[in-house]
């Protein structure tokens, strides 16, 4: 289950680090860094159900059609 309760102790520090991570980067470079970050974190989490929940939560309130509810695919 995706934990959406506060889980990062120094949340302001984390947020600043996340913003600093992108300092001096072009939009294109930032997009690449974000993609790498997502992939690294996704692998760390590993649990397909948690990842799917996170993807659905991320997609909420953003346009387009909602994601199909997850099912295991081969």
């Amino acid at each position: 289950m995706l934990n959406t309760e506060p889980n990062i102790a120094a949340s302001d520090d984390f947020y600043q680090e996340l913003i600093d991570l992108h300092r001096d980067l072009s939009d294109e470079e930032s997009a690449l860094v974000n993609a790498k970050l997502i992939l690294l974190l996704a692998n760390h989490i590993g649990d397909a159900a948690v990842l799917r929940e996170a993807m659905q939560a991320a997609r909420e309130e953003v346009g387009g059609t909602p994601l199909p509810l997850g099912e295991e695919k081969g």
């Binding site: 997009a31 690449l32 993609a35 790498k36 992939l39 690294l40 692998n43």
Partner: peptide, 22 residues
């Protein structure tokens, strides 16, 4: 975006075994 993720996987694959599977 699809291209960005593809390139990110290839960049990570050089150092990180998990990305090679992708």
């Amino acid at each position: 975006t699809s291209r960005i993720f593809r390139d990110a996987v290839l960049m990570l694959a050089k150092r990180h075994p998990f990305a090679r599977r992708l």
